[in-house]
Design a protein around this nucleic acid. Structure first.
Length: 320
DNA sequence: TGAGTCAACGGGGTCA
DNA sequence: TGACCCCGTTGACTCA
């Protein structure tokens, strides 16, 4: 690493630094300490005459500049820092990306640079680091978003599948209900004594516990419908029973409300939802505003909502 | 020759 | 008020 050779022009109060390899760093003048010319083009403005006079050397400047160097290379050209200088600056930056005055002075001395140059280098280095950091953060956020979106899509598919299952079950339930009513009506005159009817229901506790409330209620007026007829779904054999209101699949039009309003409010504290509630209404499924926006809040809310939905639906679908 | 990189500048804000 | 920082910009330089 070769130190700078400093030059100072008393006529213009400017200074310059020539490095061993031929680098000439322009270091500015006294009225704006260490701030060199912005550029060669900048020399065309009012500053240019001063700078030009600086380099159009007279006899006194012969003492200040290496004649050979000065002839072969225009000194006002902007020079890059040498690899060694950059290496040491980088090492210093790794230690601490802010520059205390003392460290700046030491570094400048060590590298043969002006303190102003060291300060500028650190400023530019911080700017580059920030840009890189932003890129890293963006990549991280994007992969997180993509992953979340993927999960969301699979949940959406599952939801559609469950919806169609529910529709199918409801249809079967309605058909069976009609059949049983017709049979009950036809059978009633000959079987007035309910105590003697055979409900065809297994007497075991397990099955009794598994019988939906409305089915048990149905036995009061119809003993001729088999349990499997009531419970069969054709797609997995699951039935949904509302412990309070009976075995109805709660369907608020577009959506199936596996969650109540409170759940929704709890999971989306900042989300203003409309008349729908539930995990996947058409308006709240994120298909319009949800995908264009990502935040930790959103991610956490979706995660929580999914867990909640899973928990609640388990409660709905499984009993023993 | 155009795009990318880098040293350096100017302006505006903050702080002791 | 000066020193410092951040931000946006400029122009020199490099390279494909």
């Amino acid at each position: 690493m070769e130190p700078c050779r400093f030059f100072f022009d008393p006529s213009t109060t400017s200074s310059a630094c020539q490095q061993g390899g031929g680098n000439m760093l322009f270091l500015g003048n006294a009225d704006h300490v260490f701030r060199g010319p912005r550029s060669v083009m900048g020399l065309m403005d009012q500053e240019s005459s001063r700078r030009r006079s600086f380099f159009s050397s007279s006899s006194s400047q012969d003492e200040l500049f290496d004649e050979e160097y000065y002839d072969e290379q225009l000194p006002e050209k902007k020079r890059r820092l040498t690899p060694d200088q950059v290496h040491m600056l980088e090492k210093s930056f790794e230690t601490e990306n802010k520059l205390e005055p003392e460290r700046k002075t030491q570094l400048a001395k060590k590298l043969g640079l002006q303190p102003r140059q060291v300060a500028v280098w650190f400023q530019n280095r911080r700017a580059r680091w920030k840009t890189k950091q932003l890129e890293r953060d963006y990549d991280l956020l994007k992969s997180s978003y993509d992953s979340l979106l993927s999960n969301y899509d699979s949940i959406l598919k599952e939801n559609h599948k469950l919806k169609s299952e529910v529709v199918s079950i409801n249809q079967k339930l309605e058909a069976k209900e009609e059949t049983s009513n017709i049979k009950a009506a036809a059978f009633a005159p000959d079987h007035a004594d309910d105590d003697k009817c055979d409900p065809l229901v297994p007497a075991g506790d397990e099955m009794r516990d598994a019988v939906p409330i409305s089915y048990a209620a149905g036995l009061q007026y119809s003993c001729s419908v088999k349990v499997e007829d009531r419970l069969s779904s054709g797609s997995g054999g699951s039935a949904v029973v509302d412990e309070v209101e009976g075995p109805q699949l709660v369907d608020s039009g577009d959506s199936y409300n596996f969650l109540n309003e409170d759940n929704v409010h709890n999971n989306y504290p900042h989300h203003h939802h409309h008349h729908h509630s539930g995990i996947n209404s058409e308006e709240d499924d994120g298909s319009d505003d949800g995908r264009g926006y990502f935040s930790d809040v959103f991610a956490a809310a979706v995660e929580e909502q999914v867990q909640q939905a899973e928990g609640v639906s388990m409660g709905w679908w499984v009993w023993s």
